[in-house]
Nucleic acid binder design. Structure first.
Lengths: 219, 219
DNA sequence: GCTTTTAGATCTAGCT
DNA sequence: TCAGCTAGATCTAAAA
């Protein structure tokens, strides 16, 4: 997929210096990810193609682990109220991939901020020094209320500006542009949230853009 | 219902002085609320009684409005990235009732904090000076991953301690204790999230407590 | 009526 | 296997 990035609190300085290797590997994974789609079950748009978080997460997770990221890293005991684990970690870099509902953005970054301010040791005897946050762009058709890149940017802007967030954060937005292209189309059985694949395959898709900027995807 | 409260950033000073009237009215509403239950549709616990956020929200909302709270108060334009509206507002007091999934806690309080720090004018030419946050206790059977009082307290504790939150916040937790008592049992039709009442009525319920502290409610 | 968006409801997945 | 919990998926409701 294509990507856009926005840096907060000088995250860009880190990815072009000390964290350059980590970033270039990550970039490679993201850019090599196909577009994964699934049929929506939402009333009035039944069957329409929407972004498939399950297949996308599976693809990314597999590669991140191959690249040495630790998945589901346990949150230190003293901060257990913030949850069980962080999606991925490598040394002091926290990586979250978020396609769920929008409040998870502030939830995820706030707990990262607490780890940062408290200089808590995370992985490999390092303190948290960078957060990378992956989401999808608003132009992609998706389930209602799922977080999107532009929303994340705007919220983080305000939070940084008003001093709530000081940890370096790099936000990555996955997107596509109008084209006749190919995408993975996955049909799950078992209803909402099912991860049981009924069938999956590459399909030709026609991506067009509405006046609003939203993409229309015909499989 | 019964309530527990926890104060952060001296919210308790406000509710016993300048905001005493507002608080005593609110308390009256909360304590007069019946327990609302509905059958769960979750696999393995189909039909079991769980906390009914729809009926509870409806009951509370009606009374709050009667007491002069403004519902769905529009978020000032410059902070529109944080959403459309705040549940209820009265002068400088922001009121959120949250029975949805847990990340909404940090989402809601963070946007309130930004309003507080920026001294933004909210209702009646006042700046935000207090947030009251209502949720339910962990002992009540509920949908998975819905926010609960103890979780809220623990997360806010860390956020206040590490300087992310400075706005006075009063957290209210609704709960019940073991008893043979009465509750509203509402059956909706139309599946998940439906607000169309098929039937509703007072029922006798037997509330017992498990070793874990969780309540078991038999209708 | 259709689109867009947030808020809320609330399920399944998967681990302890 | 049942209980308890967080993470993630993703719908309906409702208003603009």
């Amino acid at each position: 997929m294509l990507i856009n990035i926005t840096s907060f609190n000088n995250a860009n300085n880190l990815i072009s210096s000390t964290h350059q290797q980590l970033w270039s590997e990550l970039l490679q994974v993201l850019q090599s990810s196909p577009l994964f789609l699934k049929p929506s079950a939402q009333a009035n748009i039944q069957g329409n193609a929407i972004f498939d978080p399950i297949a996308t997460n599976y693809f990314l997770s597999t590669r991140f682990i191959q690249n040495g990221w630790r998945a589901a890293y346990p949150i230190p005991r003293q901060f257990s109220s913030f949850g069980k684990d962080i999606d991925f970690i490598k040394n002091g870099t926290l990586l979250e991939v978020q396609f769920s509902n929008y409040p998870f953005l502030v939830n995820n970054v706030s707990r990262a901020e607490v780890l940062f301010r408290s200089q808590t040791i995370v992985n490999n005897n390092q303190t948290a020094d960078l957060m990378i946050f992956i989401t999808k762009a608003g132009c992609l058709p998706s389930s209602n209320s799922t977080l999107y890149y532009e929303q994340a940017i705007d919220q983080l802007d305000s939070l940084v500006q008003h001093g709530l967030l000081t940890i370096p954060i790099l936000v990555v937005g996955l997107y596509e542009t109008p084209a006749q292209t190919q995408a993975y189309w996955t049909v799950y059985n078992g209803g909402v949230s099912s991860r049981t694949i009924l069938n999956q395959g590459m399909q030709s898709v026609q991506i067009t853009q509405r006046p609003s900027g939203k993409l229309n995807i015909i499989v």
